[in-house]
Nucleic acid binder design. Sequence first.
DNA 1: TTCTATTGAGTACAAATTACTCAATAATAC
DNA 2: GTATTATTGAGTAATTTGTACTCAATAGAA
Lengths: 254, 254
Amino acid sequence: MNLKDFVLEGHRTFMPNVAVDCAVFGFHNNELKILLLKWKYIKGWSLPGGYMKHTEDAELAARRLLKERTGLDNIFLQQHHTFSGITRAKLSAQNLKMFDKILGVDVPADNWLHARTVAIGYYALVEYSKVAPQPDSFTESCEWRNIEDIPPLMFDHDEMVTRALKTLRLQLSHQPVGLNLLPLKFTIGELQSLYETLLGQPLDRGNFRKKMLSTGILKKTGERPTGKAHKTPHLYSFNKKAYAESFKSGISFP
Amino acid sequence: MNLKDFVLEGHRTFMPNVAVDCAVFGFHNNELKILLLKWKYIKGWSLPGGYMKHTEDAELAARRLLKERTGLDNIFLQQHHTFSGITRAKLSAQNLKMFDKILGVDVPADNWLHARTVAIGYYALVEYSKVAPQPDSFTESCEWRNIEDIPPLMFDHDEMVTRALKTLRLQLSHQPVGLNLLPLKFTIGELQSLYETLLGQPLDRGNFRKKMLSTGILKKTGERPTGKAHKTPHLYSFNKKAYAESFKSGISFP
DNA sequence: TTCTATTGAGTACAAATTACTCAATAATAC
DNA sequence: GTATTATTGAGTAATTTGTACTCAATAGAA
């Protein structure tokens, strides 16, 4: 669907008023990353997102959007908050002027994109190395940014990131995290580093190790990474069955 | 606004596609209660809810709706989940037929109420005795029901109740609960009973008492209830400042 | 005045958390 | 080839928290 069709005929495919926005988190080089889009004409940054199709619920829409942006299926997704501030409407109007220029036709005042939009916020956890960031026709780039180094975002997306992180940290305290963010094989040190990054505080090495091993969600692979200096740690993977059980029944951390 | 105006002209005031539904919880006679509406013509039960005005965000809409239904301002409100299942549309269509009959005019196919609706779910905690349940023009009654004795609800409202309770229980594990559900003065036994009801499990009396007093959120009033059999317990109230701090910083329970 | 259900307080034990130590190890430097 | 060194894997003592109780004090009821 090209831009003109989207603006003028999009209401046949998409539901007006309701959009989905995703905070996609990855973990690389011991740093938490987030996937951001840079828009073509207005030059702003935003989270990946879009309208829901008439045939989709919000989660399915999020999965479609994320498949397009990352190439991945079966992403870990969690709804965190729905944003409905009345100022969201004004931002839409601003964008519409832009469409007028680009399309070279007047967009009618009752166009579906003029409507105020409520955004259902999701966060996604993905394995950094498996993502192939793909911009769409509206955006000039789609890239990972360090969570500590995010440019000012459009709309209320700064608040979305804050809330997504807050919900993720809450999840961390009563459910395991890591299966979706780490590669298949990883060291306990890497897992600890992930937890430290998400919590924003250092953790005791010995105690973290003890705690994690006691949950039974880790499985020793027998392998060790090569080429690293000093003693190399064991590589672990998640015991998916035990992980799923812990996820369901809940574990407290710390 | 009467029914005819609402159906035919409501789109001028209300946003289509997006509604707000509230699970209102109260506590009375050591039982958890929920506020339900019984509809006039279709005879079904539902949670109180409604459409957002163009001038409102979701929380403001929820506060307006709850003010109308309970008479209360400044209710404790928490967003828990947004429901966007595609089957929600069909249910709306069903209702529209009903409007045709009642109004005696054909509701046009492009009427705003025909649109599929996404519902933003909130839960509210209120002091049972302060609520004066009020039906509106669509409903024949608005009443408290025991949480263990809920009739089948319309739409996906059963799932809404389940999710609201789940979120409330999660809140209980890391934030204090009670200020919004109990009267100004209460005994530690009543507070324990509230916790037991919400968690669905018995708690040790001595340990609960110790834990609660150690948080510093309780303040002894010096009074005791009269007219009860046997030794009467002390009446406590919440130290609102300490409560607010615990709410913000979080406390783990148990 | 005695009886009894309930409260407020305390205590012994178990479990979890915290703050450490230390030997084993594997790559690096010499 | 051997010594050096940063890091891992494992363990332990001290402390805190949680669990399962007991028991005297109390105030209305018998």
